[in-house]
């Protein structure tokens, strides 16, 4: 079976029209197989898009996409608990769980496990598969050698293994909103200032290194993960689904480049040179190679991003 191309949930606070237009293009023009929807970062953002979801789902399904709903990463407040439980008890759609708060409600029913669920080893995978998990998006910090061991165990369990291959990498989550803090506000008075930075707000070090990106309560890499040159390696190690994370760049074009790679229609060098023209980056891939995540490892050895 050929590996499938997926689109992870939008991590950033785009306004409703931008999201609708984005998904309309994805539905109609992209070669993506599966689209993950839903707010996974900040529960305060959900009201803005909830009413548009049915229309977006319909459009994506009409375009032949499988739709999966992703649950919140951090679940503390009562409204976050309710969001998670409501999503998990409704049995009429695919769900991806990103917090253990969703595991009891889905026990015994098919579901997916998201990248924030800390599935680092086969024993954890086997345990969750016994509860109905049939698809694992692994933590982005796992090196390819570990992913390979996980995929070997996944095969007899008949569960899928998904790995992020494009986009800024989620590195940490907090109860505090760093976006609000940067604007001298509290989370309760944030006025959704995170919406001003559709790909996140860059933090530079005191020596002007562009180091990290903040997105509300989340911290991401400044560099864009790009495993376009490693696609053969991903497939050889048993990855079944390749995930692209949404950014404001031309994601239809990005997904086409990755689809070409998965189908063997282009080389890693060709894909990298096409992606280099997008004006995003720097590109990073250190985690996959077992080195510092901010680095880019190529044939000449590790290169600082």
């Amino acid at each position: 079976m050929a590996a499938k191309l997926t689109l992870g949930p939008i991590l950033f606070h785009w306004d409703a029209d931008a999201k609708r237009d984005f998904y309309a293009r994805i539905a109609d023009e992209s070669p993506i197989d599966t689209v993950y929807l839903g707010e996974v970062v900040c529960s305060k953002r959900t009201p803005f898009f909830d009413s548009h979801l049915p229309e977006v789902v319909e459009r994506l399904e009409r375009g032949g996409k499988t739709v999966v709903f992703s649950s919140l990463t951090e679940v503390v407040l009562n409204r976050e608990r309710k969001m998670t439980t409501d999503l998990c008890v409704a049995g009429d759609h695919n769900i991806e769980i990103n917090n253990a708060a969703g595991l009891i409600a889905t026990k015994g029913r098919p579901h997916r496990i998201g990248p924030m669920m800390n599935v680092y080893n086969e024993e954890t995978m086997v345990h969750l598969a016994g509860h109905g998990a049939n698809h694992f998006s692994l933590p982005p910090e796992l090196p390819g050698t570990v992913v390979e061991l996980m995929a070997q165990r996944a095969r007899p369990l008949d569960v899928a293994i998904e790995v992020q291959a494009f986009g800024r990498v989620p590195l940490a989550i907090s109860a505090r909103c760093f976006h609000a803090r940067a604007h001298r506000r509290s989370k309760d008075e944030c006025q959704f200032v995170c919406g001003e930075d559709p790909d996140g707000l860059t933090l530079t070090t005191l020596e002007n290194e562009r180091f990290l990106v903040i997105n509300g309560v989340q911290t991401l890499s400044h560099g864009y993960l790009n495993l376009a040159a490693e696609i053969e390696d991903l497939l050889a190690r048993g990855v079944t689904h390749v995930r692209l994370m949404p950014h404001r760049t031309d994601m239809v074009a990005v997904s086409t480049i990755f689809a070409d790679r998965l189908a063997g229609r282009s080389t890693g060098a060709e894909a990298m040179s096409r992606l280099a023209a997008f004006g995003i980056g720097p590109f990073i891939n250190g985690f996959w190679h077992g080195i510092a995540g901010h680095q880019y490892h190529d044939a000449r050895g590790p290169v600082a991003a």
Binding site: T73, E74, M116, N118, Y120, P139, P140, E141, V169, L171, A172, I173, S174, A175, R176, L212, T219, S221, G286, F287, G290, I291, A292, G293, H294, Q295
Partner: peptide
């Protein structure tokens, strides 16, 4: 600490040693 513990790979991103692993 305000980062959700067990969900932070900042150190691994910066220097290649994973807090979790």
């Amino acid at each position: 600490g305000l980062m959700v513990e067990g969900r932070c790979s900042l150190t691994n991103y910066a220097v290649g040693i994973s807090t979790n692993m």
